[in-house]
Design a protein around this nucleic acid. Structure first.
Lengths: 104, 104
DNA sequence: TTATAATATTGTAAATATCTAATATATAAT
DNA sequence: ATTATATATTAGATATTTACAATATTATAA
């Protein structure tokens, strides 16, 4: 009864791959707390400018994040809050102590 | 306030990678409906025996699925129901029409 | 206009992941 | 014992991903 079309599974797996990387997932976790410009994300993650930019571009192209230019800075934010929910599920799996008794 | 330790992020990204593949995600979707033996998963996914077995092994080693021998068959099941929840979040993103008005 | 700061893009070598084919193992049936 | 069935493992060629360095772009400041 849960018949998911193959094409959707393919796109979903591509979306997953877009966050299945230590640095990209780290960025996502920081963006959950609010918009951040590239510079802030560099400091928060310790990644190099070039490397971070490439990963941000990848996530933007996959529809995970979106960006917006303000002055000379570019601010990124999570495109669909469901990606934040997905991170919360991950926390339930890998950081159960942080989730305490909260249900999904 | 949502400070997630880097080590957890690393492990979570590894877990994500373990399902961020069309075939592996497809298997996961089938396992949501209940335990399946390798043979059934072969038919359901159309993958070759060898290829499927390798992907199942990878998911088992990453703690996504677990298996159990019954007679001459090996049945796989989702190890932690939270992985099923994660697939549901993906459905909200990529198959919204299937989720109708259900919240997470 | 020149310089500086913030971000993006490109080229590329190294690492990782993937698939197929072949082979191995273990269990059940004859 | 032999054969058949179900699943796992290994080897190797190809494809994809990654990180770093260098360069480009764009907007602001001097």
């Amino acid at each position: 009864m849960n018949k998911i079309p193959q094409e959707k599974i393919k796109r979903a797996s591509e979306g997953l791959r877009a966050i299945a990387h230590e640095l990209r997932l780290s960025v996502l976790c920081h963006l959950i707390e609010g918009d951040k410009c590239v510079h802030e994300l560099m400091e928060a993650t310790g990644a190099s400018q070039s490397n971070l930019s490439q990963h941000l571009t990848k996530m933007r192209m996959m529809g995970i994040v979106d960006n917006e230019k303000r002055g000379q800075q570019v601010f990124y934010h999570i495109a669909d809050p469901a990606w934040g929910d997905l991170v919360h599920v991950l926390q339930h799996i890998y950081c159960p102590e942080m989730c305490a008794e909260q249900p999904l």
